[in-house]
Design a protein around this nucleic acid. Structure first.
Lengths: 161, 161
DNA sequence: CAATGTTATATATCAAGTTATCGATATGTG
DNA sequence: CACATATCGATAACTTGATATATAACATTG
């Protein structure tokens, strides 16, 4: 069965990258599911941002993640519900709401950094290893490799030391 | 402001590709909006599939687009509402519903192929021109170029002959 | 040939992104 | 100081992807 997005080349690059991104996220989710991490893979970038940059107001969090502000508001509400982040008004400006990791959030991130992220990162690096040349060719290679060996099996194989 | 997805490299490749795909689709939409095409950019792959492969049942359409079947069912219902596609039961198997372009759909696709798709394709090709080397570097270059000159301005500059 | 199983599609629900808009707080100026 | 304007975040409505499940038609088999 012909893969239309692949055949259309540059014309549908956006749709194709979105599709690949979704597949990678879904595969990553399967890796996370095997451990008892019960949050969605899509929430990790927000936690990682707080880890790297420290407490941030909603707007700056949105900027550093490259998504629109309402998306961050929703994610923060969800993570606050789970007790992983908390929100406090800024001292100097009552409009700004500063998001920070809670103790539980901190522990989860530390554990993820130690036990999980390395194996995901290695699996994706393995997926993209030794690629070169034009973008469309690299994308095709990644799709082919992923069809052959899904990401969660690569994460098994490449156990973290 | 640090771009977290970029900093995280392979770990968040899925989120990053999804984000880039969404931006490309949104930019493409802006190109389409300037003409009087009033359908969403995300519907074009389905129309292109019917154009290239001819009438297809829902399931095969889903496979050739690389998306799940319910998504196709919904898109088809929408395009049928607009009078661009029609659905008929297969002769031999009453379960299969064959999707095909209507006269209006055919005309829209022909017009898009002549007037619009080439300029989008050229704009994206321009965006990706002269890239080589590792994937992450190419993605960064595309993000940088897109921030400097959005796709819809590239489509203006590179008028189709 | 009736019962059971399989397949194709539709429907329901959820997730996560978007834009547009509202309310509350800051800010700046006449 | 008061009022107009700007900014921050929340909310609503929509889009489009996903999965799970229901329904209807076909296939198989005892």
């Amino acid at each position: 069965m012909e893969d239309i997005l692949r055949s259309l080349g540059f014309l549908c690059l956006g749709s194709r990258m979105k599709r690949m991104g979704e597949q990678l996220q879904a595969d990553t989710q399967r890796v996370l599911d095997r451990l008892d991490m019960r949050i969605q893979s899509s929430q990790y970038p927000l936690l990682a941002a707080l880890d790297r940059l420290g407490p941030l107001p909603v707007g700056e969090l949105a900027q550093s993640l490259g998504v629109a502000q309402p998306g961050v508001t929703r994610s923060v509400a969800l993570l606050a519900e789970l007790g992983l982040v908390e929100v406090n008004p800024a001292d100097d400006d009552q409009r700004r709401r500063i998001v920070s990791l809670t103790g539980n959030g901190r522990r989860l991130v530390d554990r993820a950094k130690r036990d999980i992220w390395p194996s995901i990162e290695n699996a994706v690096a393995d997926l993209c290893a030794d690629l070169s040349g034009p973008l469309l060719g690299q994308l095709s290679a990644i799709e082919d490799r992923l069809a052959e060996t899904p990401l969660h099996r690569r994460a098994e194989r490449i156990a973290t030391p």
